[in-house]
């Protein structure tokens, strides 16, 4: 097992960069981070749209969320693989295809997280803001969202773990991420799948478990803070 790592660690870490796109573990983390970074503002906008007064906006966003919740991510990936280059009119690499699929899919899921955070705030918060004469937009951006995002931070971290795991599906459309690197090594060595897939699984585990544990730690802290405020 160690000799596989020793001989292939660069490939596992960064793929065949600089002769190709950044791949390997770095590719996985890059894809996951960029996707979260873009999906988050989208999800906040969607969560706000679902609480808005316009029925069309509300209905439209609600259908998107339901559609995403009812469709396997793999289906979204294949759609994206076909549609994104067609709609843009220029060729798009698999990395960005996967990025679009993850952003669309995760925005829907994250918007549920953010919405839950908004709805979990005591009604008194928005009432107090209204009683002070604060307009809706100021109330949203200075009172509601900061608290909702802070409170749902652990849930967001948990969702980041999901995104890391989901990037592995990029393998199916040829994204040069971590699973792809392992598959390439497997194709080279042919007869040592147990070791290669163990390395793959363990590495994913270490990364995802660290983030999941961090999420739990943050959640305990936030809950403690809230406990004080209930006094």
């Amino acid at each position: 097992m160690l000799d596989i790592i020793r001989e292939n660690w660069v490939l596992l870490l960064i793929g065949n960069y600089p002769h190709g796109p950044v791949g390997g573990l770095v590719g996985t983390l890059l894809l996951a981070s960029v996707s979260l970074l873009i999906a988050l503002p989208c999800s906040v906008a969607m969560a706000m749209a679902r609480n808005s007064h316009s029925r069309i906006l509300r209905g439209g966003v609600t259908s998107i969320v339901w559609l995403m919740r009812g469709t396997p991510l793999l289906m979204v990936v294949f759609w994206s693989n076909y549609l994104v280059p067609l709609l843009l009119g220029w060729p798009v690499g698999p990395f960005w295809v996967m990025f679009v699929a993850l952003v669309v899919y995760e925005s829907a899921y994250l918007s549920e997280v953010v919405r839950a955070g908004i709805n979990a705030l005591p009604r008194g918060q928005s009432e107090a803001a209204r009683a002070l004469g604060l307009p809706e937009s100021v109330t949203m951006f200075t009172i509601i969202l900061p608290q909702a995002l802070y409170n749902s931070f652990p849930a967001l971290l948990t969702q980041f773990v999901s995104i890391i795991k989901e990037t592995s599906l990029g393998f199916v459309i040829g994204v040069h991420e971590f699973t792809y690197s392992a598959a390439v090594i497997n194709a080279n060595l042919l007869v040592r799948p147990v070791e290669i897939f163990s390395i793959l699984a363990l590495t994913y585990f270490i990364i995802c478990f660290s983030f999941a544990s961090a999420a739990r730690w943050v959640e305990r802290r936030i809950r403690r803070n809230r406990g004080l405020s209930a006094q």
Partner: peptide, 18 residues
């Protein structure tokens, strides 16, 4: 923890190949 922190695709590949 193992079941929840390893991508399902990797678990499927592990079951199948290893």
């Amino acid at each position: 923890e193992f079941s929840r922190n390893i991508p399902l695709l990797v678990q499927v590949m592990f079951w199948y190949f290893a």
